[in-house]
Amino acid sequence: MDLALLENILFATVRTGTPLLLVALGAMISERSGVLNLGQEGMILVGAACAFIAAYSADSLMLGVVIGALAGALVSLIFAFVALTLISNQVATGLALTIFGTGLSAFLGAEYVGQSIEGMTRVELPLLHKIPLIGPALFGQDLMVYLGLTLFALVFWTMRSTRLGLIIRAVGENPQVAHALGYKVLLVRYAAVLFGGAMAGLAGAYLSLSYTPMWAEGISAGRGWIALALVVFASWRTERILMGAWLFGFASILHLLLQGFGYDVPSNLLAMLPYAVTIVVLVFMMSRKGAKGLFAPRSLGQPYHPPQ
């Protein structure tokens, strides 16, 4: 295997891992605050459709990215209102968001199927992108990949060394105590869900503006669910999410590789790989010794009604 091929594999891995990284970071923050939002898939789709429509109509990729994030946050607000203010079952409400988002995105995007736009271009960072092996993968990508890595660093720093990170964790571990300490549990959870929505919207924007610059129904192809599995895989820890996103990114491009090496496997069968890998990874995670709690936030998915 020569260097150029390895460089290409790493490049594609980082690129394919980026939407997963974005979604998983948002989902993790939401879950660390105690809210299980299974609507990731719906939020990505709405973000992808709105981003494409905005970019196509206004001929501006930047506007598309912003609109994608806003749209993701907006639909997550519906989830937050029903799940947090109306204290509903979070599992069912997340499913509702996925069903609703899938329908809404298909509805909004119907006129735009088959339209194409000029996707994002690569921005090579001077000198850095010439580093052998990892240069192109980390420093020769488009702006969304850099944004993903920047947001990763931001989330990592927030959760590790800021007061805000502590508050989010306190609210997720024990909302009663957090409330007694004077923190507004619902406010923190609303903010966490909205952040998750914006991140999923960004991932959608990345898919429809850069990864495959077009809109198609169901363009996210289960990435929202894979990202949720990724959070479990990462044991709710930021640094592992980055590794996980790249691992899953690699699993998603495996089929290109196999085809490149001349293995003649039908493409539909190879397309199953990322999903199969997800199941295998989940099994592996749960079968390790002491995997019982897996560091899940203690109040994850449990409704909370503040005392009056």
């Binding site: 204290i87 079952n89 499913l95 509702a96 329908g103």
Partner: peptide, 27 residues
């Protein structure tokens, strides 16, 4: 002349509204 996917919108709304209204069972 609306996209057929309006079905999914109505289905999603139904479930959202239902889960919201279920608040009144316990509160």
């Amino acid at each position: 002349g609306l996209p057929k996917s309006i079905t999914g919108l109505f289905q999603g709304m139904l479930l959202f509204f239902l889960l919201g209204c279920d608040l009144l069972i316990h509160y």
